[in-house]
Structures are given as structure tokens and as C-alpha cells.
Amino acid sequence: MKWRVLPLATHDAFYNMATDEAISDAIAEKKAPPTIRFYQWKPGAVSIGHFQSMNDEVNVGRCKSFGIDYVRRKTGGGAVYHAENGEITYSVIAPEDMFPKGIIESYKVICGWVVDGLAEVGIGAQFAPINDILVSGKKISGNAQTRRRGTLLQHGTILYDLNVERMFSILKITNEKISDKMIKSVEERVTSVLGHKKISEEKLYEALLNGFTKGKEFEFGKLSPEEIEKTNMLVKTVYKTQEWNFMR
């Protein structure tokens, strides 16, 4: 099946999350092809996992004073700080029968595309179940997947640059999260592309694009008018609402 690739684009947190859901719905209704999209966040944002509490995970007051958005994802997983120009995010949205039935196996397939992309710029990365990609034992990419109406959605971030101070000031990192791995600080468990290779973000994007499209039939495309309409609707009725973002 031919893939649609939506090239790197920058939007706010609400539009980014709504776009994933609108595409997922279009694919479930057989109105859109399997899609790979790359995007960034402006302004920077924190996304939290579906089952997390916004107030427990995020220093909301500090986000407001820094002009950083905060949004709840449809997918599970943890809280992520998406710095403006600090990472490249991808989404893979496709009929679930194009992937292994097992969740971990399907993570492995898509995370393998990230690993292939990083290999193109000389960074040796490994998939680390459940949902991480590591370089020299440190996390460079977090990923999250959901399946709905026969459609798989996996999105993930590839850290380009790391602002630990800002990340720490916005996310509330619990001791339990760190102590399990006997690791003292976020610096010791997270890394970025720039920490390994001094390459431009454009170069990283090209490499990821190659990793994701290798061996696939694909064409660059755009959202359909129906997907755009749905995205705008979801921004207003879900992703920007207090009810959704503070439901836990």
C-alpha cells in the first residue's frame, strides 16, 4: 500500500494532537492512506500520557509564565517536554493489519525506522522495550501507541537538543521514576542527537525521512479538506479544553 508522507511542519500542541486523531479517523473510514507525518511544536509544549494527572506531572503555573502549552495525549506513556526546535516528532497512522498484532512487536517495527534514521547520521541506537530508543544506555526517543477502530497510531519524539534545566523546571519528576533504575538525574538517563553528532536539524529530518520511507512506496501529500476540518473541530472541542486536559 502506498504511504502518504506529510513533510516536517510546525504547529501548536493542540493542532498537532488533533491532526493525529483526524488522520486516524480518516484512515478508519478508509478515506485516507497510511500516513507518516513529521512535526515540531511552536510554542514549546508538554504532552502528558492519557492516564496521567496534569497537575501531578506538570508545573502548570511555570508553563503559563514561560508561554509553554500543555496537552493530554490520546496515547498512554509519560509526560514529555517538546522544546521548540529541540526535537522532531513523528506519527505513523495506518490500518493495524499492516503491523504485527502484538503491541511490543509493532513498537519494534516502527522504532526500527527511527533507529535506521539515526544510523544514517552515524548514531547507533537500539529499541528498548517497552517504548524507548536508547543510545549508549540513554533515552533519545520516547514513543507511544494506541489502536482505535482498526487503526494504529504511534507517535514519538527524537530529541535533537536537550535543555535539562527547562525540562526539570516544567516536569515534576518523581523519585520513584528515577530510583527504580538507580539513576540520580535526568541528565544521566536522557540524551540528544546533538550530544552525539553536530548536525543540523534539517540533516536529522532528512535522515529520519530516509529511515521511515526505506523500502516503501510513498508520496508526499497533505491533509484533505475533511481532515483539516476535523482537526480544527477537535482542537476546539477536545484538545484545548480544560475537561480533556485536566480530566485526571
Binding site: S53, G76, G77, I103, E176
Partner: peptide, 26 residues
């Protein structure tokens, strides 16, 4: 990571399960 917030007397009256786990369907 799993967090449980609970209100209880003899019985559990309110409970919220939170965390960074995955559960399908959400």
C-alpha cells in the same frame, strides 16, 4: 509507574488509577 488515589471508609468510595502505563482501549 502507577499511582492510586483513594477515598475510603469500610469500603472504597472513590478511586483513581494514574500513571505512564499503556492500556488498550484507553
Amino acid at each position: 509507574l502507577v499511582t492510586v488515589k483513594v477515598s475510603y471508609s469500610e469500603k472504597i468510595e472513590r478511586i483513581q488509577i494514574l500513571g505512564d502505563f499503556f492500556l488498550h482501549p484507553e
